Computed example of a mutant assay.
Amino acid sequence: MGNMRSNWILGFVLASFWFSSHSFLLSNDYYEKSCPSALAVIRSEMNVAVAKEARMAASILRLHFHDCFVQGCDASVLLDDTPTFRGEKTANANKNSIRGFEVIDGIKEKLESDCPGVVSCADILTVAARDAVILDGGPYWDVPLGRKDSRSASLDEANSNIPTPNSTLLNLLGKFLLQGLSATDMVALSGAHTIGQARCTSFRDRIYKGVEGAESDNVYLSELKGICPQTGGDNNLSPLDYVSPVLFDNAYYRNIINGQGLLNSDQELNMYGSITSEVVQKYAEDPLAFWQQFSDSMVKMGNIVNPLTFITGEVRKNCHLVNE
């Protein structure tokens, strides 16, 4: 256990240096002259998308998260498979989970009309995730820009790096630390689950295998079992935060304290005596503290970039395909 802890600490230090030392490659005013309409177009298209389907805010936020945990925030998650290329969409954590590609496509199409070949898909996704939070009543933060789109993807990294719904606390910590994100970042970013929904397959084990905390509220548990039977109904959906599923607030943390986290990975954050339980308690009591840390952690996650991408990357014309 001591060696494992030492390895995590070393990995965290190295990852923090690697990612933070290259955040200078990004700037808040990157498109001020080259595409001054960029932020307005993204905001307008996100308004339309979320008005049409409230769930889309959470979907875009999740898409950004899944992108940044593989090769950094480089839009690799958007790439389609081709006869000669294998993307990340069929990874276990992405299959039947990530969605909203058509929203990013619509934004890209409009920006290609306004500013051809200027705004990267990676930047579109990062800004769209910020706007998604705002549209559900959450905080604003400035988004550093200037990312390039990767010409590669990694199915292996997508399968190994992205946390799963049944993750244990130690597993979660390891995967966040690998990205240079602290335990506090992890708890704050997990607060994205204050909006959105999860498929039955993501929480079935939690409600039927007696995971600690899952039976603290028999009424809630009965409702979940009605949504998610032991067999069948794999695609049935339940809100990640049943109290206020389309409002970006701190109810998610209060749910966890009450043993009502939908996913095992949610409830694990409040494990007794863990380094994360105090942070959960803090955010349950202080929504402004949650908003502030979430904003800071989103910038930190969005700044995960592979510096080689600025040399080998590109601005894709179509977010699904590398340029010819």
Score class of each variant (00 low, 15 high):
residue 20 S to F: 12
residue 46 M to N: 06
residue 26 L to W: 02
residue 52 K to R: 09
residue 35 C to D: 13
residue 39 L to G: 00
residue 62 R to S: 14
residue 68 C to N: 12
residue 77 V to L: 13
residue 86 R to N: 10
residue 59 S to W: 01
residue 84 T to D: 13
residue 54 A to Q: 06
residue 37 S to P: 04
residue 17 F to G: 12
residue 49 A to P: 09
residue 63 L to V: 03
residue 55 R to H: 08
residue 17 F to D: 14
residue 38 A to M: 05
residue 26 L to K: 05
residue 36 P to G: 01
residue 29 D to G: 14
residue 24 F to V: 04
residue 20 S to Q: 12
residue 57 A to P: 03
residue 30 Y to H: 15
residue 55 R to W: 05
residue 64 H to W: 14
residue 65 F to D: 07
residue 24 F to C: 07
residue 48 V to A: 08
residue 63 L to G: 03
residue 22 H to A: 14
residue 11 G to F: 02
residue 83 P to Q: 07
residue 62 R to N: 13
residue 28 N to D: 14
residue 22 H to F: 10
residue 28 N to P: 06
residue 23 S to F: 06
residue 84 T to M: 04
residue 90 T to Q: 14
residue 40 A to F: 07
residue 27 S to N: 15
residue 85 F to C: 06
residue 72 G to C: 08
residue 27 S to E: 06
residue 10 L to W: 13
residue 46 M to P: 01
residue 19 F to E: 06
residue 16 S to T: 15
residue 44 S to Y: 09
residue 40 A to C: 04
residue 86 R to H: 11
residue 87 G to D: 00
residue 53 E to R: 00
residue 49 A to R: 04
residue 17 F to V: 15
residue 82 T to I: 07
residue 66 H to I: 10
residue 86 R to E: 12
residue 64 H to F: 15
residue 43 R to Y: 05
residue 74 D to E: 11
residue 56 M to D: 08
residue 66 H to Y: 13
residue 52 K to T: 11
residue 38 A to Y: 00
residue 85 F to E: 00
residue 90 T to N: 15
residue 29 D to M: 02
residue 29 D to K: 10
residue 23 S to P: 02
residue 69 F to V: 13
residue 30 Y to G: 12
residue 16 S to C: 08
residue 21 S to P: 10
residue 29 D to Y: 03
residue 27 S to C: 13
residue 44 S to V: 01
residue 61 L to I: 12
residue 60 I to W: 02
residue 21 S to L: 03
residue 67 D to R: 01
residue 85 F to I: 02
residue 88 E to H: 02
residue 31 Y to P: 04
residue 16 S to A: 15
residue 80 D to P: 04
residue 17 F to T: 14
residue 35 C to K: 15
residue 87 G to M: 06
residue 9 I to A: 10
residue 34 S to C: 07
residue 28 N to Y: 08
residue 33 K to V: 14
residue 68 C to P: 09
residue 53 E to P: 00
residue 14 L to T: 15
residue 20 S to T: 12
residue 18 W to H: 14
residue 36 P to A: 10
residue 21 S to I: 01
residue 65 F to S: 11
residue 85 F to M: 01
residue 44 S to P: 04
residue 67 D to E: 12
residue 34 S to Q: 14
residue 13 V to P: 05
residue 23 S to G: 06
residue 28 N to L: 12
residue 69 F to P: 02
residue 60 I to S: 03
residue 74 D to S: 13
residue 66 H to G: 11
residue 55 R to E: 10
residue 47 N to W: 00
residue 25 L to G: 07
residue 56 M to S: 13
residue 78 L to V: 00
residue 50 V to D: 07
residue 51 A to P: 04
residue 90 T to F: 11
residue 51 A to K: 13
residue 75 A to F: 00
